[in-house]
């Protein structure tokens, strides 16, 4: 597969005053969906696009993919125009709904998309096997996609987005319809891909997902970027400090609290850190899996496809 040269310094995605105005039948402006957006996303970054419904996230993504044309402003993806066929060789895309051909099996679906990347037969067979194993659908590879649940279709959608070992992966609500294990797996996958130097653009309503994986985010409202920056910097509460220590006996706690009160002049608060629900759920399911085996919908090794991490 040919990969174009994009130096580490060169942004993978760059927009300059990107604007999209939807017009009515008479060409009169109807909606300003994207309004002078400036973005610069680098190699190996996981970038989150956040915003309420109608804020312009999907429109921005569609412009980046060449599905929509900008009304004004500039956009470059992998150093080329979004419609450039050579740039598309390096892009993987998972839309908000998977939009697959219902009459194809997962294997046929992946084979169809693989052929569009000029992959050889042996390459396709190898990657399809790895991807089906990765998304846990090897056992359902000969069933039609139309028979799948939303979550299973989503997994195939994700697999097709990765068939070409892309350098830029655009994921629109990737965890929608997935169970917590699937969500965790997708998030782990994103982190793995980023570690390989691949760029991920993530659009999601699930703020916890974005918080877990994204390096930087942009929050959109009415087509404009309202806030942007590194996630930990944006979320940092600079007027509070937290200490974490191993579990202590009550006497010791009171001793430390008194000491702290003397030093800072206000009453400090004490609580026990709680496990989040996602982690608790995963622990329970892992235990059940050890005892009873895999469920009907998904059964896999949870490994990331070998070629995504070793090529």
């Amino acid at each position: 597969m040919q990969h174009s040269d994009t130096s580490d310094q060169q942004p993978i995605v760059k927009t300059d005053k990107l604007t999209k105005v939807f017009r009515d039948f008479w060409r009169r402006p109807k909606v300003r969906a994207v309004d002078e957006i400036d973005l610069e996303i680098g190699r190996g970054e996981i970038f989150g696009l956040l915003g309420p419904n109608g804020s312009g996230k999907s429109t921005t993504i569609k412009i980046l993919l060449g599905l929509l044309r900008p009304t004004s402003g500039n956009v470059s993806v992998m150093g080329s125009a979004p419609k450039n066929v050579h740039a598309k060789q390096l892009i993987g895309y998972l839309p908000e709904d998977s939009h697959l051909y219902n009459y194809l099996t997962p294997r046929e679906t992946l084979d169809f998309y693989g052929k569009l990347f000029d992959m050889t037969r042996s390459q396709r067979i190898e990657r399809i096997t790895q991807l089906l194993d990765m998304v846990g659908l090897t056992h359902a590879s000969s069933r039609r996609v139309g028979e799948f649940s939303k979550g299973m279709a989503r997994r195939i959608g994700l697999a097709q987005a990765l068939i070409n070992n892309p350098q830029l992966i655009v994921l629109d609500e990737p965890t929608s319809g997935l169970d917590p294990m699937g969500c965790r797996q997708v998030k782990d996958l994103m982190l793995t891909l980023a570690r390989q130097g691949k760029t991920v653009i993530l659009s999601s309503h699930l703020l916890a997902d974005v918080e877990d994986v994204c390096d930087r985010v942009a929050i959109l409202y009415n087509g404009k970027i309202r806030a942007t920056g590194k996630v930990n910097q944006l979320l940092e509460k600079r007027d509070n400090t937290r200490f974490t220590v191993p579990s202590l006996p009550p006497g010791k706690i009171n001793e430390i609290l008194t000491l702290l009160k003397d030093k800072i002049g206000t009453d400090p608060k004490v609580d026990h850190p709680a496990m989040n629900l996602e982690q608790f759920f995963l622990d329970v399911v892992q235990e059940a899996h050890r005892n009873t085996g895999s469920s009907v919908g998904k059964a896999g090794s949870d490994n990331v496809a070998y070629y995504l991490t070793h090529e």
């Binding site: 993919l65 060449g66 599905l67 066929v85 050579h86 598309k88 060789q89 892009i91 895309y93 839309p95 709904d97 939009h99 697959l100 051909y101 998309y113 569009l116 990347f117 000029d118 097709q160």
Partner: peptide, 14 residues
Amino acid sequence: ENKQIYLLAVKPVY
């Protein structure tokens, strides 16, 4: 209409 074209149009196909 079914938006299947999204996946086709973003692939390296003229």
